[in-house]
Nucleic acid binder design. Sequence first.
DNA 1: TGATAAGCGGAACATGGTTCCGTATATCGC
DNA 2: GCGATATACGGAACCATGTTCCGCTTATCA
Lengths: 200, 200
Amino acid sequence: MEQDTEPKRRVRADALRNEDAVLEAAKAVFAEMGVDAPAREIALKAGVGVGTLYRRFPNRADLVASVFRREVDACAAEAAKLLDAYKPADALERWLHRYAAFLATKKGLAAALHSGDSAFETLPAYFRANFEPALASLLERAAQAGEIRDDLQAYDLLRAIGNLSTAGGDDGAAHARRMLDLLIDGMRRGAKASGSQDAD
Amino acid sequence: MEQDTEPKRRVRADALRNEDAVLEAAKAVFAEMGVDAPAREIALKAGVGVGTLYRRFPNRADLVASVFRREVDACAAEAAKLLDAYKPADALERWLHRYAAFLATKKGLAAALHSGDSAFETLPAYFRANFEPALASLLERAAQAGEIRDDLQAYDLLRAIGNLSTAGGDDGAAHARRMLDLLIDGMRRGAKASGSQDAD
DNA sequence: TGATAAGCGGAACATGGTTCCGTATATCGC
DNA sequence: GCGATATACGGAACCATGTTCCGCTTATCA
């Protein structure tokens, strides 16, 4: 029904460049300082003025949500690429680490999600809608190849890794990585190909 | 083991008065504007300077936690008073409304709890440690008197009312009150004294 | 290649947390 | 009661950060 009012001029090239630069900078800054990072910091890193930032993202929540969606897209898209480049179980392992890395950059987002800001409401659904099929395809291929057990649910795994990643502590990152490796080993041990040796 | 270093002078009377005034003002302002209310607002309402506020509560979280504990104490303490003044089921009903009123003043606190600030970590335990025994005593007395059913768990009720109270919407307060009344009626209908008529 | 709309940068403003310090006063020994 | 003095007070000032505004710059188009 709706028709774009045909614009006389196309969007300026620098505007496009800047939008991208802002998103990239925001991604980096959020990862480093959490989603409460100051807007000036992001503008500085992006090499633009704060005015430019605010013109495109009228408030913080818009920016946060955009960055989040962009990262979800990138991470989910990688599943297909990995499947092309590696044997299924290796692709799966690499992707899970990639996913864990994604989660590691989400400092403070969990709290923001509960802030009630309407810009965040659709994010959990977006998260699941993208990651669940991505992981499911990896699991399916690896299970078909007999490289991992075949009774794993994508959503369960996504949640489990999310939980592992939130366990803070001194060296949370290293801890989470060890636990993830354990999980992956467990997936492989249960594979049909390697028999049913499930002692200890 | 530790011994207070015996102070030469006692705490000044005005300091005591001001601490109380700040807590009272903070309670009112938090209820009205949420826990993110500006410190100046609180100082103004308390009739003190911000300096006074900050001397006693070095940061916001300290103040929020103190107000919260004070309100929990007051609400929990009321259970005993109500039991003295009313017949058990009425005391219970009044207290549940009192508890709902307490919850209604907690705008934004839920989010703050998840903020990771260490000053908040002990609050949930404090909440439960005070409210569960208070409500349990009310339930027990009313059940003994045969005025309500006897299969109610204090913690379940606390949670249920908490959930009812969070349901937002246009007139969240009125809605929550209606639901609470329904709940209370349900408790009474199940009483031994009134038979076992659990139709519709 | 000039006209012009689109876009830009960053100063300026608004808000709110926190600190600092000169002033006021409650307490205590006399 | 009466100073002396530690204690506490008030609020201006400072800093960080979100947000707006507008004069200047520049990509686009004819």
